[in-house]
Structures are given as structure tokens and as C-alpha cells.
Design a binder for these strands. Structure first.
Lengths: 201, 201
DNA sequence: GTTAAAGTGGAAGCGGTGTTCCGGTTTCGG
DNA sequence: CCGAAACCGGAACACCGCTTCCACTTTAAC
């Protein structure tokens, strides 16, 4: 009744069919956008999900909202990877494995590549990174790696999104089915970040 | 008269006004595409050039043809830079300056970034690189740098287009007016390519 | 100066994609 | 079991940008 009490957090339970369809749409979207990136059409998603376009729009106000929902999931995975990196014994190994994981994720999801390399304004990108705890987690990993002397002192947290941008552009390349190209690219970049005087403990 | 003699190389001199307009279109296109990349509209180019769209289409069959004409110019600059790299005394300095120059070019032309990172199929990209002598020049620079021990033995010519792809994605970023970000990125990549045991002669 | 060929401008055509709208259907509390 | 509310499907709509088309203008050869 009181419009104030239920203003921002107005969580209303979805009807059974609605909840099912929402999942179907999300699953279909993950697949379509993962393969075709931003150029995926809303109609494709609807068809794949076995629902009408109207249903897609009922759950997501527009294409951007759907895309951001998908991308947020991926960003959460990036964050999770960063947390794991902090727990690895050897700081360099943790750092390296984290970026590697990020590469794998990009390689198997064209949408996240498109998103990171462009597709939407930088503000949204940063907002989502912040929301999903990625910005903070990145700072932590960098600090940790620096403390251990694993990466150069000149490396800054902001260098990571930049690298992900470059890596994303490479990873979404259509003619790299084996992933050989992006792996080489990442390998060179890691060499550029590593502190030359570091040796695993 | 004989259709055979003038078949493939049928160079007909353009009328004076046509030649003038062609130049205007090219100049306008360089500016528009340079700033806005592939999303530039044909109408924009026409307006900027002070001609009708029809005139643009008279000189270039479609948008792709216009884009490729512009990009070919840039690729020629890449090639030219590579040739200069071979003449520099210190192999590492030559190599480094070349990639730096490539970065500058990408930073001031969003279209070439779009082209290198996507926008068109890889076949066209490779075809133009071949046409403009870039592929060959790249092989030469890599070989030269390796001979001098400036870059790691593991570096291959194909790694350069890959790096340019990543660099292009970074360089076209709208929020990097000073170029600080792409320069840092390139610097790290160079560190990854450089042979650790090399010292300038 | 005359005329045929070359060139021009820009309105209209067209294909493609995100989004809306609403008659019909499903859910679920009472 | 009933009815209101929530939900669904997909045709229709709206918009946008590349490309075409042709009546009109300019060039340049004779």
C-alpha cells in the first residue's frame, strides 16, 4: 500500500511460467550472444528460447539490458578468478592463471569481447566492473603480485582492463578456432608484465 | 574498338570536375572515417565533401570500396614504416620505432582500427596487407630483428598483425585523448617481444 | 556554338532490426 | 471451479542507413 516502503526493492514473485521462460530466454541468450556477439538479433534469442519476442522484452526492457545481464555474469567470473589468484601459493602463478582464465572466458563468449572492446560506452563498462567487484579485486591482485615482486612496479591496475580489451579483440577473431593466436598474444603480454628479476619461490 | 585490347586496364581519363570531386570525396572520407570509424555514414561524407551521395557512389561502388581505399593508404604507411625500420642502425630501435609509428597511425584514424580489429573479413585484411607489401615488409623486419638478437626467437611475423589488432582496439578507445593508455599498452607488449639478453650496439 | 557523353544531386526505394501493442492464454488465489 | 491479473506470441510498426535512379547540369570534342 505505502508506496514508500516498496519503492526500490519491490521484489514480486514471478508466476511459474514466467520464471521458466525467463530462464529459457537467458539460456538462449547466453548461447546466441556467446557465439555471435552483439550482432545477435532479439528474434534469434526468442526463437532459440522457444518463446515470442514479446516475452523476451517482458523480462528485459531492451537489448542493452539483456546484454548487460549476460556480461555481468562473465564479470563475476573474472572477479572469482581474481579471488582465486590471491590464494595461489606463488604470486606469479596466481596472476598468470587469472589472466589465462580471463582469456578462456573471452574466447568462448564473443559477447563479452564485444562488450569489452566497444559496443557500449566506457561508463557502463566501469559501472559493471565496479558492481561485480572486479575493480576492487583487480587492485588486490596487482598489489599482491607487486608485493611478491612478480610483476614490474610500473604495472597499474588500469593496465589490466586495457590488456583485456586488446586480448578481447584478438580472441574474438573468427579464424582462431584452436585459440593458438590469443594464447600466444597473452603469453607475450605476460612476458611484458613480469618482473625480470622474479623467480618462483 | 577492339574490346580485348582495352579489357582489364581500361584507364579512361576523368573529366575535370569528376577528378576534383573525387579528391573532395576522398578528403572528406579521410576526415569522417578517421574520426568516427566505420559507423560514418555515406551521407556524412557527401555533405562534408559538398557533393551529393550519388557522386560518392559514382567514384566508389559501395561503402566497403571507399573504406578499403582509405585503409590501403594507411597500410602503405605501415609498409613505409617497416622499410625505414630496416635502415635504422640499431635493430631494436628500428623495430620499436616502427611499431610506435603504427600505433600513432591507428590512434589518429579510427577507421583503420575498426578495420584491423573487425569490420570486414580477415580475407580482405590479408589481401590488402599483401597488396600493399605489408606482409613481406613485416617478414623482413622480424627476420632482421631476430638476426640482430633484438627480439626473441619465438616471435613470428604473424604475431605483428595480432598485436596490431589488440593495439587497435585499445587505441580507438574514446577516453584516451592523450594517447597515454595505448602507449603504455604498446610499451608492455614491446617488453614482451624484446630479447632479454639484447643490448643496443 | 552545338551536341553527345559524362557527371551530378538528392529524393525515394529497400532491406534489415529493435521495439511496441494487444487479443488470446495461463496461472493461481479464493 | 471461476475470474482477475499476469503473461504470452508474433504481426505490425518505426526508424535507420546503404544504395539506386533519373531528370538536370557540365564538360569538351568538333
Amino acid at each position: 500500500m505505502n508506496p514508500v516502503t516498496e519503492q526500490p526493492t519491490a521484489e514480486k514473485p514471478l508466476r511459474a511460467d514466467a520464471r521458466r521462460n525467463r530462464e529459457r530466454v537467458l539460456a538462449a541468450a547466453r548461447k546466441c550472444f556467446g557465439e555471435q556477439g552483439y550482432e545477435t538479433q532479439m528474434t534469434d534469442v526468442a526463437r532459440k528460447a522457444g518463446v515470442g519476442v514479446g516475452t523476451v522484452y517482458r523480462h528485459f526492457p531492451d537489448k542493452t539490458a539483456l546484454v548487460e545481464a549476460l556480461v555481468a555474469e562473465r564479470f563475476r567470473q573474472f572477479t572469482e578468478g581474481a579471488r582465486k589468484a590471491l590464494e595461489v601459493e606463488d604470486a606469479w602463478a596466481g596472476f598468470r592463471e587469472w589472466l589465462w582464465r580471463c582469456g578462456e572466458i573471452q574466447a568462448e563468449d564473443r559477447m563479452v569481447c564485444d562488450f569489452i572492446t566497444e559496443a557500449v560506452g566506457a561508463e557502463r563498462r566501469e559501472a559493471i566492473a565496479e558492481d561485480e567487484g572486479l575493480a576492487e579485486a583487480t587492485r588486490a591482485v596487482i598489489a599482491h603480485a607487486k608485493d611478491a615482486g612478480a610483476i614490474r612496479e610500473t604495472v597499474e591496475p588500469e593496465d589490466i582492463p586495457t590488456m583485456m580489451c586488446g586480448l578481447g579483440a584478438v580472441a574474438r577473431s573468427e579464424d582462431d578456432p584452436s585459440g593458438r593466436v590469443w594464447r600466444r598474444h597473452l603469453e607475450f603480454m605476460l612476458d611484458g608484465l613480469r618482473d625480470p628479476s622474479y623467480s618462483a619461490k
